[in-house]
Simulated scan of single mutants.
Amino acid sequence: MSPQSQTPSRLFPDGGPAADPAGDHFERRIRSFQPRRSRVTAGQADAIRRLWSTWGFDVDGQRVLDLDALFGAVPVVLEIGFGMGETTARMAAADPGTGVLAVDVHTPGQGNLLALAEREGLANVRVANGDAVILMREMLAPASLAGLRVYFPDPWPKKRHHKRRLVQPEFLDLAATRMAPGAVLHCATDWEPYAEQMLAVLDEHGAFENTAPGGGFAERPAHRPLTRFEGQGLDKGHVVRDLLFRRK
């Protein structure tokens, strides 16, 4: 059986990202994501086998994380949904004094980010597997985050699926409790209707203020790298929107 076709349990019998780490401990709500666990390459699987016990953990919701123990006494930013991890690794390398807690359910991406972190010597990256809402609500202390990044979340374009979008008022309620005053929520999307929804709910939320001069969308800041995927979209005429809102 090729590495691409093996399941996580077969690939990582001695520990690794679990298929459903929170199990039945929490409510079965509508989720903003769908687990994607196929096509794990040999290199990604090797990185998970060797590095998961040190740099990775499952989001089981059973404990509050000690971020100082994970990262040292540095500010910590949560990144929700990191894809294959290239942007995460580049931003972590450019800012070694900030811890990056990156959460996703994509096993190949988890392996790829671990491999990138090892190759680049990124001691400030930790990889979480599971539901970001459970991570924030059950495993992060109030006001513990120096920033929150949501880059190119699933837009759920069909109207009947809009309720699955991550950036909603209830998500912002939770995020506001976990972000320290002055922390910045940075969202980016190339799906214009979702961008407009994000802007509307953020503008209406009392805990956040828009950092863009005059309001509206922000220019892409220099610290967010242009990804290959994003560049391909721009070449096709896609419009990418950045939103930067500060926790009051």
Rank of each mutant, 00 (worst) to 15 (best):
S32C: 12
F33A: 01
F33W: 14
Q34V: 12
Q34N: 13
Q34H: 13
R36F: 15
R37E: 05
R37A: 06
V40E: 06
A42Q: 15
A45K: 05
A45M: 03
D46R: 00
A47V: 09
I48L: 10
I48F: 03
R49C: 13
R49T: 11
R49Q: 13
R49L: 15
R50I: 04
R50E: 08
R50C: 11
L51A: 08
L51Q: 13
W52L: 05
S53G: 13
T54W: 14
T54C: 02
T54V: 10
F57E: 08
D58K: 02
D58R: 05
V59K: 04
G61Q: 12
G61K: 04
L65C: 04
D66E: 13
D68S: 15
A69I: 06
A69V: 06
G72I: 15
G72C: 15
G72K: 09
P75E: 15
V77M: 06
V77A: 07
L78S: 07
L78N: 00
E79D: 11
E79T: 05
I80P: 01
I80E: 01
G81V: 01
G83H: 07
M84R: 07
M84W: 14
G85H: 11
E86R: 13
T87W: 02
T87F: 00
T88D: 14
T88G: 14
R90A: 10
A92G: 08
A93C: 08
A93F: 00
A94I: 15
A94Y: 06
A94G: 07
D95C: 13
P96S: 11
T98A: 12
T98W: 09
G99K: 04
V100L: 09
L101C: 02
A102V: 04
D104M: 05
V105L: 07
H106S: 02
T107L: 07
T107A: 08
L113H: 01
L114S: 05
L116Q: 15
L116G: 04
A117V: 07
A117T: 12
E118G: 12
R119E: 10
E120C: 10
A123W: 13
A123V: 14
A123K: 04
V125F: 05
R126Y: 00
V127W: 02
N129R: 14
N129C: 15
N129E: 09
A132F: 03
A132K: 01
A132E: 07
V133T: 13
I134Y: 00
M136C: 15
E138R: 15
L140Q: 00
A141M: 10
A141G: 09
P142E: 12
P142F: 04
A143M: 07
A143N: 10
A143G: 01
A143H: 04
A143K: 10
S144L: 01
L145M: 08
A146V: 15
A146P: 10
A146C: 11
L148K: 04
V150A: 09
V150N: 01
V150Y: 05
Y151V: 05
Y151I: 08
D154Q: 10
D154F: 12
D154M: 14
P155Q: 14
W156M: 05
P157V: 00
P157R: 08
P157A: 13
